[in-house]
Write a protein that binds this DNA or RNA. Structure first.
Lengths: 196, 196
DNA sequence: AAAATTTTAGATTGTTTGTTTTAAAATGAA
DNA sequence: TTCATTTTAAAACAAACAATCTAAAATTTT
């Protein structure tokens, strides 16, 4: 009964997540959201709720789709686990659309000084997703003889997470792209204690 | 002629920089600035200009005072350069006031997607200040025989900068403090290729 | 086709925002 | 003291904002 939504929810959430990623929560206006999605505020409020709720949904969507997808593509599905890992890091420096918007998780972690608990929790989820994937990848690398098994794959994974976040800060500011590109391979080899 | 300012400019700028560091640019209201400084908007506008100008001044002040001071205290004046370097990193995890506000440069780099050119430039200045200090410290460490001289102190310094920024992201979100505290020493030893 | 229900677009609301203005108080120079 | 100038505090302003409401259009179900 009643008509159906004329837009695809998933596609819309991609657009919403992207505009929040570009501008951050505070700087994004409802008008921005209208322009980005092609919908009017009425539709947005009807389907999702206010700006705040929409942001929560976008973060969750980002974790369960964008992040998971990146992990799957670059890490889990990679033939050579070490190459896949490096490719993931290099991909941060060359965003598809040529922009330098970084990562929604990173940007949000910095913007919201863990003021809102449930956001911090969702960020933790996303970071843990990455960290766990790094850990799996480290173990795979060791199994394939690419590296010697590190004493604590867990801590090594956290190191990679820190490195990952650090890159995203500089990328976001548009700074030191060339140097970072140069450093990525070495740093990963170093952290993983690559056999040379 | 005319009366003098009743407040200390430097003290005020410290407070301004701190509130911007805590809340970010967009989320900070003029009312916040009034509360933080104890001045009214009239006084602020008279002495400094609007919110935007005040932010520019705060960033510049932060570079030339807070950042330089930290570099001087932890790095240049350190007896043992390696210990000083590690202390600097550990200090990120234990802010004086018990908060977790991170670094104004990091927070701003992430909030302003290099939309405003002169801000990005000022950020670059601050990052370069850190990077250069890291480089000096690396060379001092090598001279003192703490480490073997790395092939490129410049790139090694950039690595440390990335690591530094990465920590600040997680600190800001209030995440993984214990693990990071554990990792800092190892990572610095690793990056610097410490003699063991 | 008719009825029921939902989406949609645009106008509107009340609030918050950054900024300016005003007048009084304070202070330095003549 | 007197005058000139600045700071100060509080009110006032206009713009931007998130959010809601309204009526019309659309589309599914009966």
């Amino acid at each position: 009964m009643g008509r159906n939504l004329s837009f695809n929810e998933k596609e819309t959430l991609v657009k919403v997540a992207n505009i929040f990623r570009e501008k951050g929560y505070e700087a994004t206006t409802v008008k921005d959201l209208e322009k980005a999605t092609g919908l009017t505020s009425g539709s947005l409020y009807n389907s999702f709720g206010g700006k705040e709720v929409l942001f929560d949904i976008a973060i969750s969507f980002y974790n369960n789709n964008i992040v998971r997808n990146r992990i799957s593509t670059f890490l889990d599905q990679a033939e050579d686990p070490l190459v896949g890992l490096k490719d993931l890091f290099h991909s941060l420096l060359n965003e598809p659309d040529g922009r330098e918007n970084g990562c929604l998780l990173t940007n949000t972690a910095v913007e919201f000084n863990n003021r809102r608990r449930h956001i911090t929790q969702e960020l933790d989820t996303g970071f843990s997703l990455l960290e766990a994937a790094f850990k799996r990848q480290i173990i795979r690398c060791a199994e394939k003889g690419k590296i010697s098994k590190p004493p604590s794959p867990q801590l090594t994974a956290t190191r990679l997470l820190i490195f990952y976040q650090g890159i995203l800060v500089l990328v976001r500011a548009g700074l030191r792209r060339k140097e970072i590109d140069q450093i990525v391979n070495d740093e990963i080899d170093l952290i993983l204690g690559r056999l040379s």
